[in-house]
Design a protein around this nucleic acid. Structure first.
Lengths: 140, 140
DNA sequence: GGATCGTAAGACAGCCTGTCTGAGATGTCA
DNA sequence: TGACATCTCAGACAGGCTGTCTTACGATCC
């Protein structure tokens, strides 16, 4: 019983640009996206966006609904989901599926002050939660 | 004298298999790698490994030295470097370059006990350090 | 009825990836 | 010396992916 998660072959750069625009607006037509991504673009740019959306749809990243004869697209995955997929893919490729080495590296990067103050605050909050869990039972 | 780090276009699957074999042995000839990766493989597999090594070299991932007329290859990047590159690439694509969201996700995945005790300890230590530093200001 | 806008299907070139071929240099051994 | 094996180097090649673009067609509106 897999929650049909097609291995989601990576989202490409151009596709990602469309998806990001869709994240900003929560829904949009091809026309709206074309106007945003290719200001002053013509029919061919329109078709490009159309094709990218078609591929995003086949990857399960966007959905569409007809509204007055026009397709209205909306995202079906959010940024965090894409991050999670990519991190897991990285772990699978490089660490036999374990996420720990990735975390280990990021902790090192934090040392090198690659994190903003805001990032650090978020991290402190997360670790605070983690410490509570750690102190509590480890039943689950 | 630019530390010309070519953005290191991603290492592909087949290339990674060669690189992993090179990580295990610390150096190896094409012949040795071919025997390991394509047991009983013929001349064409030999050439495949050779081509993959050539591309890895152009990506700065392996180096070679002639030893008695034969090229001996050795890795020039380790697993952690590749992890770092990939995490940064993910951050660039999805998080405007910030590593924090990645860390955030991993910490979330962490209390699913994917982390070793050592990782947790490192994380706590990091936070401890951050709390100390946090009070004082830093250069940037 | 014609202009305008949207959909749908697919053609296309360029790149990447993995595989493979061939030519040439060098070393070994009978 | 000459046959043979082994290695290097250069490059061909097909298949897939990516981004772009063309065309055909249907609906809508004045």
């Amino acid at each position: 019983m897999d929650a049909d998660r097609p291995p989601a072959s990576e989202v490409t750069d151009a596709e990602l640009a469309v998806l990001k625009a869709l994240w900003r607006r929560r829904r949009a037509t091809i026309r709206e996206l074309t106007d945003e991504l290719y200001p002053g673009g013509g029919a061919s740019h329109y078709a490009t966006v159309q094709k990218l959306l078609e591929r995003l749809e086949s990857k399960g990243c966007v959905g569409r609904r007809r509204h007055r004869r026009v397709n209205v697209y909306r995202p079906r995955v959010d940024r965090r989901t894409l991050i999670a997929r990519r991190l897991q893919a990285t772990a699978d490729r490089l660490c036999d599926g374990s996420l720990a080495p990735l975390l280990s590296h990021l902790v090192g990067a934090a040392d090198a002050r690659q994190l903003s103050d805001r990032d650090l605050a978020a991290l402190r909050a997360l670790v605070g939660r983690l410490e509570e869990d750690g102190a509590g039972g480890e039943g689950r």
